[in-house]
């Protein structure tokens, strides 16, 4: 699992995970800070991007200000042999951003998780019902976040 990442790349990650300067040459400013050229920074960033280490550069929006006030995590009880098909069906919905399979426990029998986005509880319920009809999976629960206690982007290479 040990990923190959150089000390310089770690420093680059630490800068790029913060706010990109809002000025004409933002990468130049960061490169100056790191003591490298703008060209080298851009070359390395493009490499990190190609390797999938940098998933994307860009803006992250506040959902509540962009028309999406509501999301629900729908957790499904699905027999092992049906998970593949059910997961694929869930993945086709535009309203669903994430679909994961996770382990089950006697007190937590839900194996598939789908994150449904909508404008209301009713939207989320409607998507869940639609999936239920399509897949024949009737055992599910919808978890709503009733309080946000922490929501941040991970800061890497800052542990020590």
């Amino acid at each position: 699992m040990a990923a190959e990442i150089s000390e310089l790349d770690k420093k680059i990650v630490k800068e790029i995970q913060e706010e990109l300067p809002l000025e004409r040459r933002p990468y130049q400013k960061i490169a100056d800070k790191l003591g490298i050229t703008e060209e080298e920074l851009l070359t390395r960033l493009n490499k990190l991007n190609d390797e999938g280490k940098l998933r994307r550069m860009g803006v992250i929006l506040y959902h509540r200000n962009s028309g999406y006030d509501f999301n629900g995590m729908v957790a499904w009880i699905v027999p092992p042999e049906k998970r593949e098909e059910a997961g694929q069906v869930m993945a086709t919905y535009d309203e669903i951003s994430h679909v994961y399979q996770r382990p089950t426990y006697p007190d937590w029998p839900y194996s598939l998780f789908s994150m449904v986005h909508g404008k209301s509880k009713e939207d989320v319920k409607a998507v869940a019902e639609d999936i239920s009809q399509k897949t024949g999976i009737n055992d599910y629960t919808i978890l709503y976040s009733t309080e946000e206690l922490k929501k941040v982007s991970m800061k890497y290479f800052c542990e020590d």
């Binding site: 699992m1 040990a2 990923a3 990442i5 990650v13 790029i16 995970q17 913060e18 706010e19 990109l20 809002l22 960033l45 390797e51 999938g52 280490k53 940098l54 998933r55 994307r56 550069m57 860009g58 803006v59 992250i60 929006l61 506040y62 200000n65 962009s66 996770r102 998780f113 982007s153 991970m154 890497y156």
Partner: peptide, 22 residues
């Protein structure tokens, strides 16, 4: 105006060698 939470890079924790869970 509170539309943009952040402008910057989003990294893959897995590809940076990190592990994650719910």
């Amino acid at each position: 105006a509170g539309y943009i939470r952040r402008l910057g890079g989003i990294f893959s924790s897995k590809k940076l060698g990190y592990v994650s869970t719910l």
